[in-house]
């Protein structure tokens, strides 16, 4: 089990960490990430991450809820058991609107929650990075960039050199 997961490098302060991330992005690496115990403003852009896909899940959930509410009321009040209420028609888009509206919100919220879990690859109980004692200090004050071995550009020698060039210290390989 000596297969490599990747290489990690630490950075002394937030600015060098931030600019190192920009250099990794510009070098064309895809399978890598930054780790810190606090949010670094602008890091998603420095990492070249595209905009979140969660709104799509929200939108699809919302539309589904709207249609489900519409069809449900039509099925119950106009098709399966036609019922006259207050002398109004069996079906109209007006009176089931609260139901359509509530289901839109409910399923949009479910879509958001589910989309967040899916796009964050959660739940994830284990990560090979935990094998490194250096990496565990990230929950203290360490700032770490990890480039994974499954990246196409990854090479044990040149990637290590690259991380040294951009100012990384305590560079070590992490086994899978």
């Amino acid at each position: 089990m000596s297969e490599k997961y990747g290489i990690i490098a630490s950075f002394p302060d937030t600015p060098s960490f931030f600019h190192a991330a920009e250099k990794v992005r510009d070098a064309g690496y895809k399978k890598w990430d930054t780790y810190s115990s606090f949010p670094v403003h602008g890091m998603p852009e420095a990492q070249g991450q595209p905009r979140s896909k969660v709104p799509i899940f929200t939108f699809v959930g919302g539309i589904t809820g709207f249609i489900v509410g519409l069809v449900m009321v039509w099925y119950m009040n106009a098709y399966d058991y036609p019922l006259i209420v207050r002398g109004q028609p069996y079906f109209s888009p007006v009176f089931p609107f609260p139901i359509m509206y509530e289901l839109t919100i409910l399923l949009a919220a479910f879509g958001t929650l589910g989309g967040m879990f899916l796009t964050n690859l959660l739940p994830q109980h284990y990560n090979p990075l935990f094998n490194s004692d250096t990496f565990l200090e990230v929950s203290g004050d360490r700032l770490v960039i990890a480039i994974e071995a499954r990246d196409e550009q990854f090479d044990p020698v040149t990637t290590r050199q690259f991380l040294e060039e951009i100012g990384g210290t305590d560079i070590e390989e992490v086994s899978a």
Partner: peptide
């Protein structure tokens, strides 16, 4: 819509 809906319902 609420204004319309309440008036529609009460009729």
């Amino acid at each position: 819509f609420s204004q319309y809906f309440l008036i529609y319902s009460a009729n």
